[in-house]
Amino acid sequence: MNAQQGSADEQTLADLARRLLAVDTGGWSPEGVRTMADGLGWPRGGTADRPVLVTGRSAGDARLRPVGRYEERYVSGESYVELAVPVATAAPDAAAQAAAFHAAKEELTEALGRPSVMGSHGETGPFYGSGPLWGAPFLRWRGSTDTLELRAGKAGPELVLQPTAPAEDWFWRQGHGEEHAISGFFGSNSDPANAGLGRPGGWTARSWETVTRSLGDFLEALPAETAALGIRIGMPVYGRSGRGAPLLFDVTCDDRLSIGCFAPYGVDAASLGWGTVAEHPSTASVWHDGDPVWRVDAGGPGEPRGRALAEMLVATARAAGVSEPADLLVGGEAEDVDDYHVKYYGLGLPTG
């Protein structure tokens, strides 16, 4: 990891997190934020449109997000919806960014306990914000009034203190069913902190082009995001056809993405781009018994070619007799990740 942790007299990440959780945000009103800044010992700076708190930390100043046109529908008296504090910087490549995020996650988990919520924002974060191209993982220590989030920032991980209700209200309202309304994936555990946490409805892909785009986005960032979060995803994908709904693919990812294909008789998997264990030897540790015969090693953080992989999976599904996107099913087993229940909103595929 090429992360810059700051000077020796700089607060540790754990201490910073504890200070943010203990601070009085005063309802995120202008007066409350001034009191919060004074309590943190951080002078105000920046401009009216882009206010900051001057932290003196090597990773940069903290950014306040005022309520504007994209936030106003979701607030109840708040004038600000988050304070984002950069905590480390790393080289721009996906592997370095994922490693910096994971290091922050490990320190915070030791200090605060397991986060109650985890996932990926995907292409669209809270209030329609965009994240870095390598991936958009996040972890949350949810509170009834305020929530602390570890988020992937533009240059490295950031600690984000936010009023709980506005961001959750924004997320809930995206469940209107339009294609690509929600991106990424979202998981929560049985922590009492999640009492009252709502989950929006998802959306359903209506064309193979939509599936190709959403699946490509998901696969391209997946190894970087799972490495950052320290999780392993095992996702069986079934294809409903005249032969029932047999297993078609096995998507497995921790810090490396491997995909197995159970091509039915009559489908020329090799011509569609699939290889064998001889061509992808690293997959031998994923599937020990040589089944599936057809597989691909898509690589680690920053390496998968998402669009090409998605095109290969869609072509294979259609060759196997899957006639429409609604007949491509994510196995329910994929929803159990460690002790989190995960919904893969960004795929737009049903779970069966």
Rank of each mutant, 00 (worst) to 15 (best):
W274N: 08
Y345Q: 04
L108G: 03
A100F: 13
P236W: 04
G266C: 07
L133Y: 04
L64C: 07
R50H: 12
D291A: 15
A37Y: 08
E179G: 06
L313C: 08
F186N: 14
V251M: 04
V330G: 02
T47F: 09
A95Q: 15
E324G: 10
L222R: 13
E123T: 12
V296L: 14
D338C: 00
E168R: 10
L328I: 00
Q4T: 14
M312D: 01
S285P: 00
W141I: 05
D9V: 03
V117F: 01
W170A: 03
G156S: 10
T276V: 11
S323P: 01
G131C: 08
D297S: 10
D93F: 15
A99P: 10
G113T: 12
R63S: 11
A17K: 15
Q97V: 07
K154L: 09
P137T: 08
G302T: 14
V267S: 09
F249W: 01
S29L: 01
G175C: 07
R305A: 15
G26T: 01
F249T: 00
G260N: 14
S79P: 00
A205K: 11
P166E: 03
E178S: 08
A227D: 09
D217N: 12
A228W: 03
P132I: 15
T147L: 09
P157K: 01
G202R: 03
L229T: 10
A98R: 14
A263K: 15
R63M: 10
E72K: 08
E158T: 05
E71T: 01
V54E: 15
L83Y: 04
L21T: 11
E158G: 06
A90Q: 14
N2C: 11
R213D: 14
P137L: 06
G266F: 07
L313T: 07
D49C: 02
E78M: 00
L64R: 02
V322E: 13
P246R: 08
A269I: 04
L108F: 06
S29F: 07
E168H: 13
G32C: 06
R240Y: 05
I233L: 15
P66V: 07
E106I: 14
F185M: 06
V75P: 00
T25N: 00
L139F: 03
D146H: 03
A205E: 06
S7F: 06
A310V: 03
L248H: 01
R34A: 13
A284D: 15
G275D: 12
N194C: 03
